[in-house]
């Protein structure tokens, strides 16, 4: 009975969604006020950032990114608060027994390369696809590989939270420096350099690197917390 009601509701909902999104009028004159062109043009001329998405994420809509980083921070904190039982003892195991020799030594061998890959992704956030979030996630995944392959691979929670806090503070501080030197919060106050150089885009790569560190620390802490959870 309940299923029938739900399916009826979904059918009505789906019908309205379909007439909304599938009709040719949808997005008919989206480019009317030249949003796309504006962003593309300003990214090249003012910000000298090759990746327009990065420019939007970090500069045009940088405030969103600050909020987003806060959401991740909150999620990591909330995870700790919700699952909180006792303090973790140092040296407590994350997995029951270590992985086989092959996986273990493979993980060791590939781990520096994964970290380097993450670093590459967030250092080149303004030139190639990717950036702070992706790079941070990749680094956290590298730590995940080590954590599930070894029994006694431990990360200091304090170091993680120091990295996380410092990165977050520096992000906000760069925002305030924009306010002081440029005139508005998060404004790009540094010299922008030449398009497609590594050192270009002014404050954008700096902020994205900070985001990368922060996300990496947050997600690693999150994984560490949840791996220690014993049902």
């Amino acid at each position: 009975m309940k299923k029938a009601i739900v399916i009826f509701f979904l059918a009505v909902f789906g019908y309205f969604m379909a007439i909304t999104f599938l009709s040719p009028e949808f997005e008919a004159d989206r480019n009317r006020n030249g949003v796309k062109d504006f962003y593309l043009e300003k990214t090249v001329s003012d910000l000298k950032t090759a990746n327009t998405v990065t420019a939007i994420v970090v500069n045009f809509r940088g405030f969103d990114t600050l909020g987003e980083v806060t959401v991740l921070f909150l999620a990591a904190t909330a995870l700790g608060s919700i699952l909180f039982k006792k303090r973790h003892h140092i040296g407590e195991r994350t997995v029951l027994y270590p992985a086989s020799t092959i996986v273990g030594s493979g993980a060791k061998l590939i781990f520096p390369a994964i970290i380097l890959l993450g670093a590459y992704v967030f250092i080149h956030g303004h030139l190639t696809p990717g950036g702070g979030f992706q790079g941070g996630t990749i680094i956290a995944t590298g730590f995940l590989l080590m954590l599930i392959s070894y029994r006694n691979f431990s990360i200091s929670h304090n170091i993680l939270s120091v990295i996380e806090s410092l990165a977050g503070i520096l992000f906000v501080v760069f925002g305030f420096m924009g306010l002081i030197y440029g005139g508005s919060f998060l404004e790009n106050f540094m010299g922008t350099g030449i398009l497609n150089d590594l050192f270009s885009g002014g404050v954008i790569p700096v902020i994205y690197i900070l985001v990368g560190f922060k996300v990496a620390a947050e997600l690693t802490g999150l994984i560490y917390t949840i791996l220690h959870e014993k049902g």
Partner: peptide, 22 residues
């Protein structure tokens, strides 16, 4: 292509992950 929706999705994916974890 329009870069703005991509930036929005980037934000939305990360937020979605946070909510899922919680």
């Amino acid at each position: 292509v329009d870069p703005v929706p991509q930036a929005l999705v980037l934000t939305a994916i990360v937020i979605g992950f946070g909510v899922t974890a919680v």
